[in-house]
Write a protein that binds this DNA or RNA. Structure first.
Lengths: 240, 240
DNA sequence: GAGTGGTCTAGACCACGAA
DNA sequence: TCGTGGTCTAGACCACTCC
């Protein structure tokens, strides 16, 4: 573990536990550098991480003010799997896997829409139902490149795909392009989701997910019942 | 302008224009440092900006790969005003301001929900209709702290609030907490928006916006017709 | 072994805010 | 004037990839 990440986590802890209260100032960068016996640039890397995640606001000439702890203590924007979310949020959740198969997609146009790069590879097609308090409120449709993610089982799908990919296959997940829209419900939604009579649309989150070596390995379409969907973001203004 | 931001912009340009083609590698950090006659750390700060915005993917031991140019060339996530969006996207757009007034909000609970911090200040209440090809597809409800943002006029509201705040008042906008949900339409939506007969819900983006000195100055509720709403994000995996 | 990016340092100078 | 954060440097060592 790098020194600046360690320092980031220590400071994050102190903010979360209230040892550094919101509204107050962090010790100055010079003091922190002394305290941790590192150079100031190393402290600054830690503070950049804190600022990015909404913990502090830096002010030239004054210091770093500690902000209100975000009500969400998990990265809801960003790239986090459903399994990780339910775990950090302590949500009791059940996952069912009504569809799991491997093969080429016959419709070439469909294939191209999903995987603009690898045209010939076999794909895993997985559909998962996410159940919260007895209702299916999310369905995830996943397509994974079987050349990159081999030997996938239904069991991996019902627990955590990303755990298998990162821990067992030792692959590094890099980045994703995501898109959120609201769309009319389909007959598939009606079959697989616990929709209410008044529901006429769902929130659709489409993602292309890439490894650190830039290979596209996953396309996901996550369909949410609208009353159970909430997206939270901390955003900073880009200064010129 | 700082050197590392200049270098970021030059590299961004070269990627956008295709001088650096996607799939290829950027010159190494040492070469760039020589080329621009700066230290390697300065180059690295520029590359961090490129990586954050999805232009490159860095690989230890190999180099920095240029990614596909994002189809969106504007920050749709982040903190950008509607006026800036329509300008960078060259969208012809009309804004109407059916409601503009200043005063205290009588309902205290309502006031508290909007401004959890400043309980006593006067607020500007502004409603704006955003028209695209003859249809009102977004309505923005804004509440601004009149102590912080004084002398606001209907004219500022119909062009750009942020331009007035930053350029005229010389205030620095810092950060925002945003939240996206989908909610049933209200009678106000029906009055002010061009809803279709089938529309039963809208996308609601709620934001609290803060200055760099951490003062809350704006609460916004942006209501979008669902067929005109699309949120795009570039996300990176947090490595431990 | 050579080249790449990742981390870290010790010091410098600047811009800004507060007293 | 002094302390703060913002930028930048020149150099060091490491981990990794490729040959």
């Amino acid at each position: 573990m790098n020194r600046y990440k360690e320092i980031f986590q220590e400071l994050e802890d102190k903010i979360k536990t209230g040892e550094f209260a919101s509204g107050e100032k962090l010790p100055s960068e010079n003091k922190l550098a002394q305290e941790y016996s590192v150079s100031r640039e190393t402290i600054r890397k830690a503070l950049v991480l804190l600022a990015e995640q909404g913990y502090i606001q830096k002010q030239q000439g004054k210091g770093s003010i500690i902000l209100d702890i975000p009500t969400y203590d998990f990265p809801v924007s960003g790239l986090t799997s459903y399994h990780e979310l339910t775990k950090t949020q302590h949500l009791p959740s059940i996952t069912k896997v009504p569809v799991f198969h491997k093969g080429r997609i016959c419709n070439e146009k469909e294939h191209h829409r999903l995987f603009p790069f690898n045209e010939t590879n076999e794909l895993y097609t997985i559909i998962r139902q996410r159940e919260l308090s007895g209702e299916v409120v999310i369905i995830d449709k996943d397509y994974l490149d079987a050349e990159i993610i081999p030997d996938l089982t239904k069991d991996h799908a019902s627990t955590s795909l990303y755990q298998y990919i990162e821990d067992s296959l030792k692959l590094e997940i890099g980045y994703a392009k995501k898109e959120i829209t609201v769309e009319p419900i389909t007959s598939e939604d009606q079959e697989l989701m616990s929709l209410r009579p008044t529901d006429s649309c769902v929130v659709v989150v489409r993602s292309q997910v890439f490894l650190q070596d830039t290979r596209l390995f996953q396309y996901t379409e996550s369909r949410h019942r609208i009353d159970k969907f909430k997206f939270v973001e901390f955003a900073r203004r880009n200064k010129k």
